[in-house]
Design a protein around this nucleic acid. Structure first.
Lengths: 308, 308
DNA sequence: CGCGATCCCTAGGTCATTCCTATGATGCGA
DNA sequence: TCGCATCATAGGAATGACCTAGGGATCGCG
């Protein structure tokens, strides 16, 4: 079976015209190199060197083999180098999970942070929804992610809360923004809610359902849309109100709904943003980097998490 | 230490997303592949797969490694293929030694024979002089050669005579061609002799010296030139006569000295053409081919060798 | 022409690697 | 919750890598 080791011995022997010299260069005893060459010749079924009195002389087949041997060793070396630099985050791909809304107002800055520090890397931010991201985590497609809890956290996951993101009520009607929105008023509102596909398990909705449940009411939605931008635009057009994370409101309202504003709920409600990964896994440098940078970004916008 | 085997296991695992499947494809037991992957990860100092419940999932570093692993294995395969086809004489270089005059009138046809049979190969015909060729043989730079004996044959060489090439007297003067040239007449001739550099050991001259020595005379040369064509041209201009192998005379006289002709010596003198190689060496297919073709070519021109 | 130096091969032994079977641990899906 | 699929571990046999020691051939030199 052809091996890189044999090719290394072959090249050293070819260049020196001597087994002894090759062995010296490679740091082996002479019979070891001799044995490797013999094994290579046997495996190829051809004579590579003629043993002639003083030293050895390559055959024409050896001439033929040499450039290929060099190419093969170079490719192997290149492979090692690529891995090393990927390990050092100089190149390669960094993949990180991040649920929709948080990605919306922290994602671009996060990617910018990574690229500023490691210009050679590719960055992938995965996931439209926290639960989708959790599924990727569970399947191993993602090493770590920043998601909004509560979501149906499965066993074997380590969850580290990093920030609280307040949920605010947004509307184009100044009257409804005059004072914090109570559950009573909230229950009567005409709402547009994003992330239709995932409404049953969406973190924000779970929080809101809980809030309303305490008052014995169910939330009603007038419009269901897929993405948060559309929801904000609809709010700007005065067609409905909505509840979104404050960070998203700060970024999207001026751009998509300049006539609208936001106000807190009463009592204040929060999405908890947390870093999640498989329990017991040792995180790669890339993942640790992303976690650190994402945490910093998020905490610039949302309040740092403080356990009660 | 990185090995091709590890890369093969890595690729199979990457493609199947499973150690078991990879092992099946490669024809190994599952723990063997597992061990190879672990060794590769250790040698690179990086995790390549995350072990996740059902199967394994490549990390981004593995994504980075894969194309390089493929390139490396392809290069190794290419190396093997190149050697195989060189071995089968489909490509590569065939090197053969052949001394000056014989190469002159048989070389082109010999090369044509080889190329007709093996269109992909490169052919090198080495050597201007028998002794130069012998030196290459002794040093191992040549595997086998067709040379003219007697020449100073050194120990350790196997000499197989294949043809006798008669030495003929050439002249532009029809009178001198009327009858075979005796040593007496020869000793008085004005001669032009080729291969100046090697005159002391040249095979033809040794034969002629022996012939004259029996009559107690020494040969005199009027002109010394390096190559046989020049000598023949000078003969054609009537400036001197010469002695060259009959094969060379047949080919060169019509072209370079149409007014000249040739006649035998009395007694007839012969160069013996022989195949020479190191004793005890097993000849490569290429060398055997060249010997066979060269022998056939030579025997079409010179008389087959018949031991007395 | 012998003599030492050089270089390759062979022999025999040690140690590491490779590969196997058997078995345990774990996650997934019915 | 049970069965199945998958990976990890353990232990042992076979193979390969490497070494030291010594023999044979060749080369250059006195």
């Amino acid at each position: 079976m052809l091996s890189l080791h044999q090719l290394r011995c072959f090249l050293a022997t070819y260049e020196h015209g001597s087994l002894t010299a090759a062995a010296t260069e490679l740091g082996y005893a002479q019979p070891s190199v001799s044995e490797q060459i013999r094994a290579l010749e046997k495996s190829l079924g051809v004579q590579l060197f003629r043993r002639v009195g003083r030293g050895v002389v390559p055959t024409t087949v050896a001439d033929e083999l040499r450039p290929h041997a060099e190419r093969t060793l170079a490719a192997a070396e290149e492979a090692r180098r690529a891995v090393t630099s990927a390990k050092a985050l100089q190149t390669g791909t960094i993949r990180f999970g991040m649920f929709g809304a948080a990605r919306l107002y922290a994602g671009a800055g996060l990617v910018a942070d990574v690229l500023a520090r490691y210009p050679g890397v590719r960055v992938e931010l995965i996931g439209q929804n926290s639960n989708e991201v959790q599924e990727d985590l569970r399947r191993g497609r993602l090493e770590a992610a920043m998601i909004a809890v509560p979501a149906a956290t499965s066993e074997g996951m380590t969850v580290t809360p990093v920030a609280k993101d307040e949920l605010v009520y947004i509307s184009a009607d100044p009257e409804r923004l005059a004072s914090p929105v109570t559950p009573q008023r909230f229950a009567q509102a005409q709402l547009v809610m994003p992330e239709t596909t995932w409404r049953a398990v969406d973190s924000t909705r779970i929080v809101l359902r809980q809030m309303l449940h305490e008052t014995g009411r169910n939330p009603t939605t007038r419009i269901e849309v897929e993405d948060i931008e559309t929801a904000v635009e609809l709010v700007g057009m005065g067609l409905a109100d909505s509840v979104i994370p404050k960070g998203a409101a700060l970024q999207l309202l001026p751009r998509l709904a300049p006539s609208a504003g936001y106000v807190s709920l009463r009592p204040r409600q929060y999405d908890t943003l947390a870093v999640v990964h498989r329990s017991g896994a040792t995180l790669s440098p890339a993942a640790r980097l992303m976690i650190e940078l994402a945490t910093r970004r998020i905490q610039q916008i949302a309040e740092p998490y403080s356990p009660r």
